[in-house]
């Protein structure tokens, strides 16, 4: 049994139609798993379901053997599940250090050493610690967003299109950072548009189509699967 699992999740927004149908994903600590698929396949929705932002009609979410299907998003944060949204993922009007402090809001202990660890991981943030995040570049902001999410020392980190809207160079840099995070024994689950690059750094991947699992396998397998290649990776 995997560390963090979504089992046969079915649900949608409000009383609308189901966006995901019996969709299952799982991820272990120290592993990067990507969720891929065409537009409207329900990738982000699957992630929101794991986070508790939408209510499931059926299925379950389990972390470390514990059923958390009924927990609110805030309570899931307490269970060590951290999330970086695609947009608006920083507090733009606050300094880098304040962003990190807010990430540690649920921690009552002294989190100064965690901030130090984040600065080790993202040295540029130490340099800019007293600057407003709204004044940083796109790549630096994403680092702040990652840093904020890492402040609770999560066991699961979920990323919604971390490289959306950044330049190719910054994208490579970000993927390097994500690999660094993975080495700290965090389970990473991400939704990505840049399928090729994402699969390159992923241990495993899922391809969703119309809210259902279509293909699954290791990064390499998916990259080499002709059906996946022709439909999502552009040949």
């Amino acid at each position: 049994m995997a560390f963090f699992e979504g089992l046969k999740m079915t649900g949608g927004y409000g009383t609308g139609p189901d966006i995901i149908n019996s969709c299952s994903v799982d991820v272990n600590r120290g592993e990067i798993v990507s969720i891929l698929g065409p537009n409207g396949a329900g990738k982000s929705t699957a992630m929101k379901a794991l986070l508790g932002l939408i209510n499931l009609k059926s299925g379950a979410v389990v972390i470390d053997g514990k059923d958390i299907t009924k927990l609110s998003p805030q309570d899931r944060v307490r269970q060590g599940i951290s999330f970086v949204p695609q947009t608006k993922n920083v507090f733009a009007g606050m300094t880098v250090e304040e962003n990190l402090e807010m990430g540690a809001y649920l921690r009552d202990d002294n989190y100064q050493d965690v901030i130090e660890e984040i600065y080790e991981l993202f040295p540029i943030l130490r340099e800019k610690r007293n600057q407003l995040v709204g004044e940083l570049s796109g790549g630096q902001r994403q680092q702040v967003a990652l840093g904020r999410a890492l402040m609770i020392k999560p066991s699961v980190l979920m990323l919604d299109e971390p490289t959306a809207g950044v330049s190719p160079i910054v994208m490579d840099e970000l993927f390097d950072h994500i690999i660094k995070v993975k080495r700290t024994n965090v389970a990473i689950l991400m939704v990505e548009q840049n399928a090729k690059q994402a699969l390159n750094i992923s241990d495993r991947g899922y391809v969703l189509v119309t809210g259902e699992n279509k293909y699954a396998g290791t990064g390499k397998e998916l990259l080499n699967d002709p059906r996946v290649r022709s439909s999502f990776l552009g040949g």
């Binding site: 999330f83 733009a92 807010m102």
Partner: peptide, 23 residues
């Protein structure tokens, strides 16, 4: 203060504040 900062965070970006566990 932590509470004061959490108020600014909530004012800045409500969704992210909720995701950070701010009540």
């Amino acid at each position: 203060t932590k509470t004061g900062k959490s108020m600014r965070a909530y004012s800045d970006n409500e969704d992210l504040a909720l995701l950070s566990g701010i009540d």
